[in-house]
Simulated scan of single mutants.
Amino acid sequence: MDIVLIRHPAVSVDEGICYGHSDVALADAPETSAAALAVRLATLQVPAPRVLLSSPLTRCASVAAALAANFGCAFSTDDSLKEMHFGTWELQRWDGIDRALLDAWAEDFTGARSHGGESVEQFVTRVRAWFDVFQQTRELTPAYIVTHAGVMRVIAATVLGLPVERCLKWSIDMSGCVWLRRDDTSQEWSIVRWNA
């Protein structure tokens, strides 16, 4: 089973802005980004997808639709693949958020909801519930999943049996790809490529 997680390309948002669940525009045309991704994936010898899944947010879905057209495969979106919802912090500058609220979040990283959106625990539960169902469907692979860095890290932590907090430190560039493979015999997962 091969799964390729693809982070959306750069967005047209100033650096330092929190935009987790917000639907923000891409910096470049989705077709341009999709063409560049297709070339990179071919260079990495990633198998072509049978299906392309995506977060419904424009920065992901527009690129996924263009990739699906390029590969001639099925395409669908799923709300479970959205980035974490940061509530009242959405579209605010990180350095403009009340320091006391950020400290409260840091003190109870998994459970706090200082912003009124999702807690990390709720976000992880959402993504893992989706992934538990998805990985039972072998006919959907190879699959490309165009999503967000947070979702990618939760899936990686899940398949590798690692704490999510550990994977949060692993960098994923805009348009970065994470290729995961499950051995059909042992059922063990491995990372083929990280941030390729």
Rank of each mutant, 00 (worst) to 15 (best):
V192T: 02
L44S: 11
D183V: 05
V24Y: 00
L52R: 01
G161Y: 05
N195E: 11
A104W: 14
H21T: 08
V192F: 01
I97F: 10
I172D: 00
M152V: 06
F123L: 06
F75S: 13
P142N: 06
L168T: 04
S114T: 14
G176E: 04
L5Q: 01
A104D: 15
M84R: 08
S114K: 04
A61S: 12
W179D: 00
P142Q: 02
A36G: 04
G176F: 03
Q122A: 14
S76H: 12
A196M: 10
D2S: 09
G161H: 04
R113Q: 14
I155A: 01
L81Q: 08
T32N: 13
I145Q: 01
A129I: 09
H85T: 02
T58P: 00
R40S: 09
G111Y: 15
A61W: 00
G20E: 07
P56M: 06
I155C: 04
V164F: 15
T58H: 07
C73P: 10
D14R: 11
G161Q: 08
T110Q: 15
L41P: 04
Q136M: 09
R138D: 09
R7F: 01
W105E: 13
F123C: 02
T32M: 13
L26K: 00
Q136Y: 05
L102Y: 10
L5R: 00
D108F: 15
L26I: 03
F109Q: 09
A104K: 15
W105Y: 14
E121H: 13
M174I: 00
A157S: 14
G150I: 03
A48K: 13
R59N: 01
R113P: 08
D95T: 11
R138W: 08
E118I: 05
A100S: 14
H148K: 11
R153F: 03
N70G: 07
S186Q: 13
V124P: 00
S55K: 00
E139A: 12
Q136N: 06
A29D: 13
D103N: 03
C60N: 00
V151R: 07
R128S: 11
G176C: 03
E188K: 13
R181H: 13
V164Q: 03
S12N: 12
D108K: 15
S119Y: 08
W89T: 08
K82Y: 01
R126N: 13
Q122W: 09
P56V: 03
V192E: 03
I6H: 02
A42L: 10
R7L: 02
T77P: 10
E188C: 10
Q135S: 12
V178K: 00
V24L: 01
Q92K: 14
V133M: 12
G117H: 01
A104S: 14
T141S: 12
R40D: 04
E15K: 14
G72R: 05
D173F: 03
A34Y: 07
A100N: 11
K169G: 08
G161D: 07
I17G: 01
A25H: 04
D78S: 14
L67E: 03
L52P: 02
V51H: 12
R193C: 04
